[in-house]
Structure formats: C-alpha cells, structure tokens
Amino acid sequence: MQPINQVKGEYVRELVNKGIREGGRDLLEYRAIDVKHGMLPNAEGSAMVTIGNTKVLCGIKLDVGEPMRDKPNQGNLMTLAELLPLASADYEPGPPSPDSIELSRVVDRGIRAAGVIDLDALFIEEGKVWSVFIDIYVLNYDGNLFDAASLAAMTALSNCKLPKYENGEVIRGANLPKLPITNTVTSCTFAKMGNKVLLDPNGSEEAIMDGRLTIANDTENIVRSMQKGLHGAFSEQELDHLLDKTFEKSKELRDIISKSRSD
C-alpha cells in the first residue's frame, strides 16, 4: 500500500471513532451510486457502476459451449474479475491476485445462489448449451468493489441479449431476445473498525478496516451469500443487526436495477 494511504487511514480512524465520516456521510449510508448499461454493444450485456470514486465495468458474452458432465441440460456461468493496473497504484499487471479471485467468486455465488439466471433455459441441444461469461473490470478503486461489482453484474445481466443459434452459427447483434432473468440479487458490504461498523467503505476506510462483511440477498429475510474478510471479528449481535440493515438497504439497490430494466 502507498504510504500516504496509511496516513490517510489514521485520520479516517480518528473521525470514525467520533462516529463521523469524510464528506459528512452517516455510518450506514452509501455514497452516490450511478448505474448505466448497454454502453458496449459488441458485448451481449454491459453496465458501468460508479459508487463515489469507485468505477466498475461489467461486460457479458455468451458463447455456445459444452455442458458440465453432471448437468447436461444446463447452461454454464463463469465470473471473472480483473483489478486493472489502471485502477490503482497498488494493482500490478499479471495473473489474477487472490483479491480479484475472491471478488469474482463472491459475485458469482450471489448470482448462482439466488438463481438469477435460468440455467435450464440455456440448453440448446444435446451436448450444446450457452455459456455466460461475466467479466468484472475494475477501472478505478476507491473501496467497496463487492457491491459495485455485483450491482454491475446484475444490471448487465438484467439487460443482456440472448444470441440465436441457427444451423451451427451464432447470430449476434441487434433485435435479439433478452437473456431470461428470474431474480435480482444485490450485496451490502460493511467494514468493521474498532467497535464501529460502516456501510460502503471507501478506499481510505478499507485501508484501515479490521474486518469486512458482504451480505447478498434478493428479498426481505432471505440471505443468498455471505463473505467475511480480513482478521477482524464480528459479534453475533452485529451480524443480526447487519442482516437487518442489508434487508433495508438492498431495496434501494434493487430499485436501481429495476429502473435500468425499464430504460
């Protein structure tokens, strides 16, 4: 980490101990969220999510592939994340880091567990199914990649085209039906600092957080995936509280996605 981020973090810690955050935001408040989709027409689906200064792009491609041996009638889903070196001085070019692998797997689990894509509908013919490739591209890092990435993936999926397969050829481009989407999943990520918990940590807050908890859900009272990160621990009471907060906050996120569908 850049030495300056450590120093910035110390200031943030001082503020959080007093219960305040930079920019005057509440401990359990998101930064401004902006969502756009369809900016990359070569891809079947695309979305750009901005949360504060964090910028995440998601591109989705569909190819004809072979089904998994144990699921011959189901399509495939593959989620990958790239922490691009242009997104932060701390990111290096090279093979995927453990952080980028964790990010892609957490996003992937939420989508699978909530049954967002009807994988049965992706069956084409004996031995041929659609493979859905979700690529998460981090363009600028300022914390909370988990929520930005899952929001980008969900928005791109919600507005994704399903190509046609005719006479052994894939037909792409305009005038295609939408990929069938059967559910909406979003995540809320919390950072723990000392005895304080904050929603949507920015980069300086993540630099000094002790623990991180991501909760993905689709409807009230149902949890679809969770991921606790870093050395810091959460108490049972905190978990109880944060589940409720996730149920509450996720409504805003689902609204953003459903709004993108009607655009």
Binding site: N42, I60, K61, S131, D135
Partner: peptide, 18 residues
Amino acid sequence: CRYSMAPFSSLEEHGRSG
C-alpha cells in the same frame, strides 16, 4: 506499457484474459 483487450471487447466470442 501494457495494451490489452477486454474479453468482452469483440462482437465474436469471449476472449481469453491476459
């Protein structure tokens, strides 16, 4: 310098990363 193409950049199939 690193030039790279996103796996979703082309109208054809999904590209390899890296």
